[in-house]
Each structure stands twice: as structure tokens, then as C-alpha cells.
Nucleic acid binder design. Structure first.
Lengths: 357, 357
DNA sequence: CTGTTAGCGCCTTCAG
DNA sequence: CTGAAGGCGCTAACAG
């Protein structure tokens, strides 16, 4: 181990703290040219072992860190991707970022994020403030029409849409297969012997709600639809379930458009003495953590959020690289299928009896 | 292919898509000097209305966006703060980022985050890859000792610690008052008439667990301590509760070191026919969303995570600014107190009878 | 293998 | 009020 503070030879560099060390400082200390320093640092070109060693020593001693802005200026690379998010639900948000960050890091990219944008104006401002410092943007805000984006970014930087409803925007997108997921949920209920399946849907006008409801209707087969509207909140699920129980011909199964409403419904049934899954089966959507914690544990359609985030980042990186090579962009829409997670809330009649806690 | 480098001025802006517009392009289009463009864009110096207008028009037309790297190079500012996180629990993560992002945006700063670092090596790599592109770093990883950080960053850039246990690192920090929170939780149980209070603690060695357990012991007063160890998971809470019920003298109240263990305990009591809050009261810690959804709803110590994130960012920004003015750094430890949220799980005997669903 | 030399895009004195 | 010119730190040709 060498001396800590500066105590070099002839010339005194006793005050390196005044200013961040620069490549030139390293070059001087190592007695080489700055070009050599650059080569060593970037592993490009060829350098003698001796030179490399001297440079590395100097770097350590000076605690040199390359100036990002300068590098970016001369390479015209940013190695950063931006993510613009709406006001997202806890678990979703963190899982998404986890997946994105993992992928980004794996590709030597940084992630700069801007969250909680609940109106179009706000969102657009975030986008603007990002441009110039990111190679591309991933977009999850449902508040800005794809059209706005198109004009804002036309030919400027790659944009990947991941908002629900971006399916046919004619731009690169990754979306969750809400329709397919709903179909599978209903089919599962049918397969486990349920004969009167209701749907607690999300608010009309919400793309996700609409698509899931459409899937429900499509999968019903000959059964008569029973629809109640909620708003994705637990309370609305509770209310909806109460309505369902009051029907002259109550259902023996419920497909809720998301887990929170399903949980609300479970509580309502419990309070009313309606047993789940014996008297009524319940399926949710999303597989939020609480789905596994409620009793009975909730069967649901799991959306692998982290995976979606990872895919998004990798896709965007490809787009960025393609853009640099002036290759034609891929503007198709990638679809992610939710998978069924079976738990107690839809156990079939025979096994249902076993349900205890 | 075609190397049409020179595009004489007489022509208009037919092909600006080849390359991002630069300040020089704007200057030419607006028929002014680069300096004027800079003045207009930054609102510095003085410019005639006419000039300003011409510049703005050109900016719009060219969709000019300043090159971040170039600006950063000449101003030696980054306007970005880095956040390094461990593998965080869903809700905590998202709330924290929400608060941070809000504060950062309010100060014209960007947030670059790196998450899911579960070992020291990984964490350090993340830190390194950030240095040079952030003005300062907020640190939440418990895996890297403050000492490592100190040497890694000594005098280079401001670092704010927000990991549990950073209280006496002698560096700027913001921590949650785990001890005080635990004390308040226990006092609440005492105040509502409980006379034998057990604690389900987190794993020994975990700073948070240790501190909360210490708070429990300190608040007990004359009561005899009853300690069971868990690991912050719901399952461990379930096991711990089972152990407690098997005691010759079972407790009439439980303070769990976090909500997930409290939920596990609630389920265990429920399965065993032990009524909450009539037979036993339960308090958690954190106030995760599920705390309000379980039945009975869980009394807990709420930690305002978003607020902590906001504070952290604002503090770091102050540190950055102070550092630029070479002012003495504030290296004290800021403490955030959790607040008690009363729900059904600790209702006193008299009101407990009302509890129904 | 190594050093010299232009810029990258922008800000900022300093003259006019 | 405006323009010209130098430099921020780094990379990437191009000579030696």
C-alpha cells in the first residue's frame, strides 16, 4: 500500500481535491500522452504492459473518473434510456423497474426514470426534459396519445410504448394480452365445473377494463353474461360482490378484472357467509402479492412484470442500435401472455371440501 | 454511401433528419450568432425581442434540443442524482422513488437509479458506473459498510446514506426511528390495557430487527419480555404466533417487527380460533397496503416512505450546492419518526365486541 | 506501440 | 445589444 495523500516527487500535486482529476492529469502523472490513457481506459488499440500499468496506477492514485459529458460529447453516445411512468401501483412499479434495471445494467446502460405523471402536460414536460440526455424512451403513460408522441419525437429518438391500448398505434410496443388472459381465466372456471360465471369489470372507457371484459364475453361460450362494473379498487369489488349475491340467480363463479376487486369480493362473500370456493369461485388478474396471502388464496392471471420490463429495455436497445445503422425500425406490437396461477379460491367441488384455513 | 457532407446554405431545411440539430444550425437559420442562441436559450444576458423571436422560431422549426453532454462539459454541471438500492420490497421501493422523483423534478434534477444490488461487489460496481455522471448519490444498500463508501468517495461527491444502521456512521444520513417506533407501538398496547406483550422480532444481526427489539424491551416497563424470532416473512410470523399460543402463559398482545409477520400471526390466530383483538391484540410496523386489507385491519407504525425519499433528495441537493461553494458539509443524521395508525387489531376490550368484519 | 492534433456542442469572456 | 474566439474533457484519426 502506498502513501494516501499526495506526496509525489518534484512537483507538488498536493491539492487534487480542488478539481476533479482529468485525463490530462493522469497522463502527466503516468508520463504518457493522453491518447495512451484513453487507449488503456477503453481497452482499444494496443498498449504495452508497462504503459498500461503506469496509467492504471495514476488512475488509482488520482481516483480518476472519466467525465461522462465529455465522453458523450465526443462519442455522441449517451448509454442511457429514459422511462416515463404514470402514477403506478406499488408492486407493479417496483417489479417493472427491477426488470428494466437488470436488463439495462446487463447492456451497460443507465436508467433515468420519471414517475407519477398523471396528466398529459406533465408527461410531455418530462419527455422534453429527457430529450438530449437519453438514447431512447420507454413510455407507460396512458395519458398521452400515441399521436402526440409521434409528432414530438418524429425521427428524433426511438420510443417504445408499453401503455395498455398501444397495440394498434402503429409504433413499437409491448402490451399485456388482456384479452387472452381473460379468456383463460374464464375457461379455467368453466373447466372446474362452474356454470354461471359473473364478471366484475373495471370502469368503462379504461382500455384494460374493456379488453378484459371483451375476453370474458368471448370465453363464455353458451353461458349468459353477468356483468357488474367496478373501478379496480377493493371497495368497488366489495360492492359488486354484494350486488351479485342479491341477484335472483346468483353466480357460482366470479372473474374480477383485477386482484384488488377480487379481494374485495372475497371479503364480501365471507361477511355474507357465502363460502369460497364451495359456493362460489373467484379469479383475479395481476397476481399482486396479496393474492397469495388472502384466505382462501386467490387464483389469478399472473403478469410477469419484471420480465416485461426486461423485454422492453432490450427491445429499445435494439431499436437504438438499429437507428444508428439507419436500418428500418420494427414497429410491431409484442404481446405478453399472462399465466394462470391456481390457488384455493377456484378449487373444484371435490377438493373444495378440504379447504379449511 | 453517398457522402453529401456539404449542403450549401441557399437550400432550406430539407434534410435535417440525418443528424440532430445543433446550436449552430439554429444560429444559421435565425441569422444570428451562436452566442445569441445560447443567450436566448438560457435566458442570460440581454437580447432584443426580435432576436429572441427569430431564435425561438428556428428552435421550433429544427426541433432543436440541447446536447446534454456538451452542456454538461462546459458548465461542469450534471443535474442528476444517483440512487442505489438493494433488492427492495415492492411497496417500499415504489413509494421511495415516487417521493424522490417528485423532489428531484421540483429542483430540475434527474434521477438515475440502479436497483436490486444484493451484495457488496455488485453495489460497488453500480457506484463506480455512476460516478462521473451524477452530482451525488443516495445510498440504501445495507451491504456496503459506510467505511468502504468513505474511501470510495472521499471528497469526490456527496453521498447520503439512507440505510438502516447508518445512524452513527459520522456521515450525512437519514434513517427511520426504529427504536422510537417500537416504543410507541408497545406503549399503545399498554395504554389499551394489554398486560402481557410478546414481540416477534426480525432475524438477529439485522440492524432494523435489533433496533426494534431494543425499543420493545425499553418500553415494556415492568412487564416480562416474551421474544420469538422471525425473519420478516409472513411464514415466520405464522410460526412465531404458533409458538406463542403454545406457551404456558400466552400473551394477550403481540408486537411484530413488521407487517408481514403480523399478518402471518393474524392468520395463525384465526386458524387456531384465537380471536383478535378480543383475545389478543396485534401491532405491526411499516403500514404496507395489506395492513389495511386484512381482517381485522392491522394497527401499525406507519413510515411515510415517499416523504423520506423527498427529504433525501432535497438534502442531497443541498449538499451538492454546499459542496460547490466549498462550505462545510453537514454530516448529521436526520431521523424520521413513524406514526401510529390505529385499526381494529388493537381495539380495546370494550370496543372489541363491536368488531364484526 | 506512442504522441499530436482536430474537433464533438455548448457556454462565456471580451471586443465591437 | 451582438459576434468572434477559446476552452471544457474526451475520442479518434493520423503521423512518427
Amino acid at each position: 500500500m502506498a502513501a494516501d495523500t499526495a506526496t509525489p516527487s518534484a512537483q507538488f500535486d498536493a491539492a487534487p481535491l480542488t478539481r476533479a482529476a482529468t485525463m490530462r492529469d493522469v497522463a502527466e502523472l503516468a508520463q504518457v500522452s493522453i491518447a495512451s490513457v484513453s487507449r488503456v481506459l477503453n481497452g482499444l488499440g494496443v498498449t504495452s504492459d508497462a504503459t498500461r500499468q503506469r496509467v492504471m496506477d495514476a488512475v488509482d492514485q488520482l481516483r480518476y473518473v472519466p467525465h461522462f459529458g465529455a465522453r458523450s460529447l465526443s462519442t455522441s453516445r449517451i448509454d442511457t434510456i429514459g422511462v416515463i411512468l404514470p402514477d403506478l401501483f406499488g408492486e407493479f412499479f417496483s417489479e417493472l423497474i427491477r426488470g428494466m434495471d437488470l436488463a439495462a445494467r446487463g447492456h451497460g446502460q443507465h436508467l433515468i426514470i420519471s414517475s407519477s405523471h398523471d396528466d398529459a402536460k406533465d408527461t410531455l414536460a418530462a419527455v422534453r426534459s429527457m430529450s438530449g440526455r437519453v438514447d431512447g424512451v420507454i413510455f407507460l403513460s396512458p395519458h398521452v396519445a400515441a399521436a402526440n408522441l409521434a409528432t414530438e419525437f418524429a425521427g428524433r429518438m426511438p420510443v417504445l410504448l408499453m401503455n395498455a391500448g398501444a397495440a394498434d398505434a402503429g409504433r413499437p410496443a409491448i402490451v399485456i394480452d388482456n384479452h387472452g388472459g381473460a379468456v383463460e381465466a374464464v375457461q379455467h372456471l368453466i373447466a372446474t365445473g362452474r356454470r354461471r360465471i359473473a364478471h366484475i369489470r373495471g370502469a368503462a372507457g379504461n382500455t384494460e377494463a374493456d379488453t378484459r371484459a371483451a375476453g370474458y364475453l368471448a370465453a363464455l361460450g353458451g353461458q349468459e353474461p353477468v356483468l357488474v362494473e367496478g373501478d379496480f379498487s377493493q371497495a368497488s369489488g366489495h360492492r359488486a360482490a354484494t350486488q351479485l349475491m342479491a341477484l335472483p340467480e346468483p353466480p357460482d363463479a366470479v372473474f374480477a378484472a383485477n386482484d384488488m376487486m377480487a379481494v374485495g369480493a372475497l371479503l364480501a362473500f365471507q361477511e355474507a357467509g357465502v363460502r369460497c370456493p364451495q359456493d362460489i369461485a373467484v379469479v383475479g388478474f395481476d397476481d399482486v402479492p396479496i393474492a397469495a396471502l388472502v384466505r382462501p388464496a386467490l387464483t389469478t392471471m399472473r403478469v410477469n412484470i419484471a420480465e416485461i420490463g426486461r423485454r422492453g429495455v432490450e427491445r429499445l436497445i435494439r431499436m437504438v442500435q438499429a437507428g444508428q445503422n439507419a436500418q428500418p425500425a420494427d414497429t410491431f406490437c409484442e404481446v405478453v401472455r399472462p399465466v394462470l396461477v391456481e390457488r384455493q379460491s377456484t378449487a373444484a367441488a371435490s377438493t373444495a371440501a378440504v379447504n379449511k384455513g
